[in-house]
Design a protein around this nucleic acid. Structure first.
Lengths: 172, 172
DNA sequence: TGTTTATTACCTATCGATAGGTAGGTATCA
DNA sequence: TGATACCTACCTATCGATAGGTAATAAACA
């Protein structure tokens, strides 16, 4: 699944085959089919694992133990770390951008990912004075877009620029 | 090229074949190869045409005939219009997100697209008082990301939300 | 304890479909 | 006549997926 995740992030859903995965593991493609009968099963599992890992990293959006700024910093750091591994886009940005052509189960998993991410961010921003932060959709959009700009141009400055813009202004 | 553009936007570079294009035109795939010998040629041509169309729509970034707000409105409207046709992502967001795996000529064309777009936006924003607008990278990132969110969730509210946020506050 | 039964994780071999791409012929025009 | 735009017919490579088989491990039971 590590191989599949990085393969999808670099080349899209149609850009990674069972044979690619098998070759990376020094196996045969039939053996990959044993674990994930259909490509749809693999895609769904990879997206769900990706989501679970992210939300583990983000932690609770309503914890009393940290402040709003801390939660937003964790969100931004998660994106920076995701870009840093392989200079590749967010898995769900890659897949979501071609959502109309994905198998239904993968489409749903990506859809669910974004719903969770927006919900987390909205919860994290609750009780902030307006104008302290852009709204949740704006923050997530900017991070996803900046990641794609940096991947497309192989220039990390776009992501750096946007994360700096979004980062809480109080002391680092 | 219309067919290729919409096909790439909906399914990515690997998601559209010469046969798909030929079928849509009631032709044979060999005839498509006559016009675009290699897939790389087609991809490059489609991206370059896409870029030219966009910059025609945007107009000059330093025209004396309109104000900064007008230029930003044209930029935002262009994204809204692009989403409206087929509820699909920006061609260069789809392709750029999987840039590492694109043929070199396509990669370069996408790279060039983003460089032009950032340059246009920076020029359009020149002489604005700081804090009137986010910077160019931020604006483009937010628009690209919001488009992907809306495509992935089939919910235009994300794009609406972000464009409303970015739209100049002066009278519509 | 020894034997049977299942399960796991792979394999070889193959299927039909489709991918990008090519060689060579044909019809339509200026 | 020669360029343009298509065609038929094919090639090689790869795709997702399946059938059927094999070792190794584990569980169930007489």
């Amino acid at each position: 699944m590590d191989i599949a995740e990085s393969g999808y992030r670099q080349g899209g859903f149609a850009g990674l085959s069972f044979r690619d995965i098998a070759a990376a593991l020094d196996m045969k493609s039939a053996s990959v089919h044993y674990h994930f009968p259909h490509k749809e099963d693999l895609g769904k599992a990879v997206v769900e694992r990706y989501a679970d890992n992210l939300f583990d990293t983000l932690g609770a959006a309503d914890s009393a133990e940290d402040k709003i700024d801390d939660r937003i910093r964790r969100l931004i750091s998660a994106y920076q770390a995701a870009y840093a591994e392989g200079e590749s886009s967010c898995l769900c940005a890659v897949l979501g951008s071609v959502s109309p052509q994905l198998p239904p189960a993968v489409q749903t998993a990506v859809d669910h990912f974004f719903a969770r991410l927006i919900a987390w961010t909205e919860k994290a921003l609750i009780n902030t004075e307006p104008s302290a932060y852009p709204n949740a959709a704006h923050i997530i959009s900017a991070l996803q877009g900046a990641m794609i700009l940096s991947v497309a141009t192989r220039d990390s400055r776009y992501l750096d620029n946007v994360t700096h813009d979004l980062m809480p202004k109080s002391a680092a």
